[in-house]
């Protein structure tokens, strides 16, 4: 399965298992979603289980919270993560705090799915990576898969989780693992082992990172599309790096990170989002605080530039393996 099919399968499995799961968002019903992620679900499970919503991100998340408080497990889609901001108040002021402020009386077990990230000539409003603005919010969880197997297992875990989960889907790798090389033909998932996705129910636990490649020379922390960019950088440079796919931003698998850095003594952090106050800053601070005496070199952050996401400059902006290689080489000299 590619990533689109895997996510579709997760939704299909959960609609089948739990009558309290329902899906809505813009164009997700009859049409099956602009990325085909909800294709066939309305037909198979009925229009009440998977339906179209008005173009109102705030309204979608607000009603989902109300449904969650009632006892349902709504899975809503925000068509692009760039358009999640109208719902930011609902996510931050309401979903994230409902359990806390009500002394545990109410909570919102909602999942907010949203395609995110660049590399597709999406310009300023179809490319952004907003994970850091959610990571800073106590009460939210944020999950970002990097392959079909994880996408399905993590999404099922997110839907079953009793806390609100932002589930960001790297749309650049919906159909194949993109490594940042625009000059090479893009492969599809079929050749990738993680495209082996069971048809039925399984979960990948939230808060557990995966080691995408074992290595000893340097630890590379990445998630989403950047996992593939990092793996490509490792392959091209021949550096024996350990690539960790975080999978969850929150909860963060700190132990896996620390264990790896204490072994390699070097750390490179890679994300598409802008650098300043990006999630890499938090990762860097955590590693510095807890691995200070192990580190042989300054921690490197390879990230998007601190500009809005540009259109014509896509290939200058989207970070590819070359920048990761340079950063790894710098830490090895350090």
């Amino acid at each position: 399965m590619n990533m689109v099919r895997a996510i579709n399968s997760a939704l299909d499995v959960m609609l089948g298992r739990d009558p309290d799961v329902l899906i809505f968002g813009e164009d997700v019903g009859y049409f099956g979603g602009v990325f085909r992620v909800t294709d066939g679900l309305a037909e198979r499970h009925g229009v009440a289980r998977c339906f179209d919503a008005p173009i109102s991100e705030g309204g979608i998340v607000a009603t989902a919270i109300g449904m969650g408080a009632y006892g349902l497990r709504p899975v809503v889609e925000i068509q692009f993560a760039d358009y999640i901001l109208p719902a930011y108040d609902q996510l931050v002021s309401e979903a994230a705090r409902l359990r806390y402020r009500s002394g545990g009386e109410f909570w919102a077990p909602i999942t907010v799915r949203s395609p995110y990230g660049g590399g597709i000539f999406g310009g300023q409003t179809h490319s952004s990576s907003p994970e850091a603005i959610f990571a800073h919010v106590s009460g939210l969880k944020t999950v970002i898969p990097s392959n079909p197997y994880d996408a399905k297992g993590l999404l099922i875990a997110a839907i079953e989780d009793d806390d609100p989960v932002i589930f960001l889907e790297p749309k650049r790798i919906y159909n194949g693992p993109f490594d940042g090389r625009f000059d090479r033909p893009v492969s599809n998932w079929a050749q990738h082992p993680a495209s082996e996705v069971p048809e039925g129910y399984y979960t990948v636990p939230l808060g557990k990172a995966a080691i995408a490649r074992h290595g000893a020379a340097v630890t590379v922390l990445a998630y989403g599309t950047m996992v593939h960019v990092a793996l490509s950088a490792v392959e091209e440079s021949g550096i024996d790096a350990e690539v960790i796919d975080l999978r969850s931003i929150v909860p963060l698998d700190l132990d896996s990170i620390l264990q790896s850095v204490r072994k390699t003594r070097r750390c490179v952090i890679v994300h598409e989002a802008s650098r300043f106050a990006g999630f890499g800053a938090e990762l860097s601070a955590l590693v510095q605080e807890r691995c200070f005496y192990h580190l042989e070199a300054p921690i490197e952050r390879v990230a998007g530039w601190d500009t809005p996401y540009p259109h014509a400059f896509e290939r200058d902006y989207f970070l590819g393996p070359d920048r990761v290689v340079v950063a790894m080489q710098r830490t090895l000299k350090g």
């Binding site: 109300g66 969650g68 009632y70 309401e94």
Partner: peptide, 16 residues
């Protein structure tokens, strides 16, 4: 910000 929660809650009751 809870005005829409009420609508969602009511939708849930109808759904069930």
């Amino acid at each position: 910000s809870r005005f829409g929660h009420a609508v969602g809650w009511a939708m849930a009751s109808a759904y069930k």
